[in-house]
Write a protein that binds this DNA or RNA. Sequence first.
DNA 1: CTTAACTTGGAATGGACGTTCCAAGATTCG
DNA 2: CGAATCTTGGAACGTCCATTCCAAGTTAAG
Lengths: 210, 210
Amino acid sequence: MSPDIKHFNPDVVLDDAVRVFWRQGMPATGIQALVSATGLSRSSLYATFGNKDGLYAAALGRYIEQHSTPAFAALSAAPTGLTAIEDFFTGLIGVRCSGPVAGWGCMVTNAHAGPESADPAIRELLDAHHQTLQSAMRSALHTAAGLGQLAASVDLDAAAAVLATLAYGVNLRSRAGAAADTLREAVAGALVPLRAHPAPAPTPQEVPPQ
Amino acid sequence: MSPDIKHFNPDVVLDDAVRVFWRQGMPATGIQALVSATGLSRSSLYATFGNKDGLYAAALGRYIEQHSTPAFAALSAAPTGLTAIEDFFTGLIGVRCSGPVAGWGCMVTNAHAGPESADPAIRELLDAHHQTLQSAMRSALHTAAGLGQLAASVDLDAAAAVLATLAYGVNLRSRAGAAADTLREAVAGALVPLRAHPAPAPTPQEVPPQ
DNA sequence: CTTAACTTGGAATGGACGTTCCAAGATTCG
DNA sequence: CGAATCTTGGAACGTCCATTCCAAGTTAAG
């Protein structure tokens, strides 16, 4: 059917593009930088992704698929409740503040701040990302409630909204070089008031009334 | 001393530049757009601010001085405690989601995401902004504690870190068109657990023990 | 083996970028 | 009034931008 097939793997190319867009942002990234990073030519880039906006949208989708979705799925499915939320933020802060992508922030978070956030295709990705994060948080909180980890007064939806919104703040501040300890303090401060106070009596069966 | 003085007011010019940088971001804004917005020529811009980076830094400083500092000062000095924090976020969300700058987010928040955040001069502004916000939050929480508005278990520093970090998330999500109600829910979810439970007995003098 | 279909590298295009330079205008000093 | 000094508008600079185009290369179909 096709006399010739692509000589490259689009997903690998997208991973290269992600790294450039992630670090530099969309408007500050030129086509030449993408050509150099991906190793293929302008023609192939344009034939595959249309134009720069299309390549950016594809790269952002790839980022979400590779980085966000697995973390959200783990958070959502974990049976450990509050511990899973702690692990989520611990891993997040670890990645943001040390290792090969330290100081890059989160590509989705960064995308909010640029002019690309006005593009409807991008905005759809941002909104879906936010909703997925928030519902993963809500799911973990629901698990935590079942485990008796939460204070009775906690509103699951409101708490999920807080934690999801807080995550953007953590990502953002990490890009300006905020210390990991500072970010951890903010996360801890948000989690502490959710936690059920340890029962004064050693009967671990139910939350004490009132 | 000077055979000719500037024919313009630098602060007014900066206000014009702020509007352009704020909405479009630094890398997506060209000199031509700044010339058009300010009404003065390239020569005068370069003579006054050095180059584009200098103009951006000056504009960011002007934004902080004009928008952030007054809000932070009001938050810090208000005698109303938790109410002042609520007012801060209510005003914030109102400005972000409706009116002439709706959908622009916060220029300082936006600055975190771009490559400009790597510039040491910019990073200094970002760090100072964050510290000022956080200490204003901490001050308002201290006032709230004095008014008996806070649950006894609340750690003022941790709560201030949460609220300051959350503000960045609110600013960011507003730029992607998040609904005001959604943002208000996140803020409310962060404030509710801080609040002292109303005393069951009508003696408003002290928080009930335990 | 020829032909058609498709990818690929690299040159070419026009426009916008940030920055510099210079002549002209304006004002204060001698 | 003349000279010096600074600002101003606008042209000019070379570079990089995103995008298009074309010839060469490669493979499947006939």
